[in-house]
């Protein structure tokens, strides 16, 4: 790695009540690259993803120990404002979840609450920029006032991506963004992810190893709450060091 990583996790433990979900995770995530987190169901990859923007705070019984730094700032420090953190670390969820409002309002909501624009024209420009970046502009530019929930599944997910990048975060987290989509919509989103990494650091949780191989430059393999192996995607898929990784990518476990 030539540059210093944007996110570093040191000895991260996560507990749900008495149950330990993550055990001593150490991971570095480079800037402007796509990092995929893979592993069998229940391995803790989504839990780790949700630690990065502190969405786990919403779960009462969840406890996070260790240290996660983004751009050298400990995001679990006492003085960190979660609202500010989440404006820098956006998230796209497994199931498309646009607000039941107009397409325009969906994208404009983030900039509006964070006060990113000072005029209506500026807001319109930002919404257009976000929708272009999310590859949705051509399809919706004539019907921005229609409700976002009326779009198709793939379009809804791209709307959610546009909504996430409208606040110009540094990191975008994606939690199995294509698992509810058909192969064509998936292909469009994968292309989009490759395009987006020029501006954003992307971390994607996926069940599909082909998808990880296609979209990511780096891959981390989780198994039963442990980070087994991480490194350049090509290395992980062609010459994994750990036997568990090898078994998983060849389909013997998982």
């Amino acid at each position: 790695m030539t540059k210093t990583p944007i996110i570093t996790a040191r000895d991260v433990d996560v507990f749900y009540g008495q149950k330990q979900a993550l055990d001593k995770i150490n991971l570095e995530i480079p800037e402007n690259k796509v990092t995929s987190l893979i592993g069998p169901s229940g391995c803790g990859k989504t839990t780790f993803l949700r630690c990065i923007n502190r969405m786990n705070d919403l779960v009462d019984i969840c406890r996070v120990e260790g240290e996660i730094k983004i751009a050298d700032q400990d995001i679990y420090a006492a003085n960190v404002d979660v609202v500010a953190l989440r404006s820098q670390v956006g998230m796209v969820f497994q199931k498309p979840n646009p607000f039941p409002k107009s397409i325009f309002d969906n994208v404009a909501y983030g900039p509006r609450i964070h006060g990113l624009t000072s005029s209506k024209a500026e807001m319109e420009e930002l919404v257009e920029w976000s929708l272009i970046k999310a590859g949705l502009w051509e399809e919706v530019k004539d019907r921005l006032q229609e409700t976002g929930t009326g779009l198709s599944g793939g379009q809804q997910q791209r709307l959610c991506i546009a909504r996430a990048i409208a606040v110009k975060p540094r990191v975008v987290l994606m939690d199995e963004p294509c698992s509810a989509l058909d192969p064509i919509a998936t292909a469009i989103i994968e292309e989009l992810i490759d395009e987006l990494r020029k501006n954003f650091t992307i971390i994607i949780v996926t069940h599909s190893m082909q998808q990880a191989a296609r979209v990511s430059q780096r891959t981390a393999f989780f198994h039963m709450g442990n980070l087994v192996e991480s490194g350049p995607t090509k290395t992980i898929f062609t010459s994994p060091k750990d036997e568990r990784t090898q078994n998983y990518i060849t389909g013997r476990i998982g």
């Binding site: 989440r86 404006s87 969820f93 607000f99 609450i113 964070h114 959610c160 996430a164």
Partner: peptide
Amino acid sequence: VPPSIREAALGMGASPVQATFHHVAPL
């Protein structure tokens, strides 16, 4: 109200009060 709406708003950096009064309560 589906929890996904709440998560979407909070994930955008809305404060809990904003998430509630902008999205959950109107629904």
